[in-house]
Amino acid sequence: MTYTKRDIVRRISEKKNVPMVQVEPWVDAVIESIRDTMMEANPTCRIEIRDFGVFEVKVTKAKPKARNPKTNEVIYVPEHRKTHFKPSKLLKEFLRQPLEKEEVEEA
């Protein structure tokens, strides 16, 4: 299942008993702030959100002899930035729990 920003807004709206119209600008502001902070990374940054995880912008090394798998051509890939997410202990522990047989069959 794919969740959208609207689903998150709806969930917060129900949880806090506030209309979705009031919640949406706040959710937008949080997401925009995280995105802007990551885009302003010079060249790296780390955004830590307790009990959720850490967003990082990391620099990759240049690859002078990368290979295009489709054409088998050797190409140069310059160094660039990439994002990385590391879940918190709380989230990791939940995700590590074994799935029930019924849950696996539904997926």
Rank of each mutant, 00 (worst) to 15 (best):
T2P: 09
Y3A: 08
T4G: 10
K5V: 01
R6M: 08
I8G: 02
V9L: 09
R10S: 08
R10H: 12
R11F: 00
S13H: 00
S13Q: 09
K15D: 10
K16L: 15
N17F: 00
P19V: 15
V21L: 12
Q22V: 02
Q22E: 14
V23Y: 07
E24V: 03
V27Q: 06
D28H: 04
A29C: 06
A29R: 06
I31G: 04
I31M: 15
I31E: 01
E32A: 13
S33L: 10
D36P: 01
T44W: 09
C45R: 05
R46A: 02
I47Q: 11
I47Y: 11
I47V: 15
E48M: 07
G53I: 11
G53D: 05
V57C: 08
K58W: 08
K58C: 10
K58F: 07
K61L: 09
K63W: 11
K63N: 14
A66I: 00
A66G: 05
T71Q: 01
T71E: 02
E73F: 00
E73R: 09
E73T: 14
V74S: 05
Y76A: 12
Y76N: 15
V77H: 03
E79Q: 14
K82S: 02
K82P: 02
T83F: 10
P87Y: 13
S88Q: 00
K89R: 14
L90R: 14
K92P: 00
K92Q: 08
E93Q: 12
F94E: 15
K101I: 12
E102D: 11
E102F: 04
E103G: 05
V104W: 00
E105H: 09
E106T: 09
E106W: 07
E106S: 10
A107N: 05
